[in-house]
């Protein structure tokens, strides 16, 4: 098992965002987390990645507890997330966005840097090469010197993906990576996600577009009012009576 979430509970004042949520994510698979607005999907991401402490329950990654770790420590363990709303280093160039994402791949410490150690320059050159590869992978090589905020929306979302990949995830959590994109862009991103999976990365995806979810997922987990109401392969989920009821709007 890659990731295991056990009996999570999160409350915001009177709102129970998560109530006793448990699910598992299989390694090197694409698992989708779906559910109507406000179901608790982003909250689950925030708990897994250390942005929120759950009132109850725990998160295990490869058998070790993540609960209580800070976000950067979660990233150090190979778990990287993207955000639902566009989230970049806005005034920084496209290339530097990815270079920042490569942080954990760098080894050079404070003293080597101050002393101008030769290895620092070697590492910089190597990292730059990796950054350019990643940019080419998501199709943004031609934008490398532009400021992130100057990119059109769809490309900003691609850059977010590139920044996430730069952190070398073994588990990648994507929170609505294609929301607001046009159909062609969506197809591109879905293709990229498949290729990322093929490189051995486990993927947990939040997405509202059911056609895309059913097309790409190995496993689907359905949240509703902070509870898991169904989980299984896409075929089963599509015909699951509770899921249909949740999506048709019953409270």
């Amino acid at each position: 098992m890659s990731l295991a979430v056990e009996e999570l509970a999160v409350r915001f004042g009177g709102v129970a965002a998560l109530v006793d949520v448990s699910f598992e994510v299989e390694p090197e698979r694409i698992t989708s987390l779906i559910g109507p607005n406000g179901a608790g999907k982003t909250t689950a991401f925030n708990v897994i990645t250390g942005f929120l402490r759950p009132a109850r329950g725990r998160v295990l990654y490869e058998g070790k507890a993540l609960t209580g770790l800070r976000p950067f420590q979660v990233a150090e363990r190979g778990i990287v997330r993207t955000f639902q709303k566009t989230n970049l280093f806005h005034r920084v160039s496209v290339l530097d966005n990815v270079m920042i994402g490569l942080h954990l791949r760098g080894r050079m410490g404070f003293l080597s840097i101050l002393l101008g150690d030769r290895r620092v320059r070697e590492e910089e050159t190597a990292l730059r090469g990796v950054a350019e590869e990643i940019l080419a992978f998501v199709g943004l090589a031609h934008r490398r010197d532009e400021v992130a905020s100057a990119l059109p929306y769809g490309e900003q979302r691609l850059l977010e993906l590139a920044v996430g990949l730069a952190a070398r995830p073994r588990l990648l959590l994507l929170d609505e990576p294609v929301s607001g994109m046009n159909p062609a862009e969506k197809t591109t991103v879905m293709g990229l996600i498949r290729r990322i999976r093929e490189q051995g990365v486990t993927i947990l995806l939040v997405e509202h577009d059911m056609r895309l979810v059913m097309g790409i997922s190995d496993q689907v987990i359905v949240l509703h009012h902070g509870r898991v109401i169904a989980q299984g392969p896409p075929g089963e989920i599509q015909s699951h009576p509770e899921v249909i009821r949740a999506y048709l709007g019953g409270r």
Partner: peptide
């Protein structure tokens, strides 16, 4: 350096910086 990029990342977007391991 990577440390300076860490500084800039924290200035620009702390949540994103932390989520890539800074």
């Amino acid at each position: 350096s990577r440390i300076g990029r860490g500084f800039i990342a924290l200035r620009e977007n702390e949540a994103l910086a932390e989520s890539v391991g800074i």
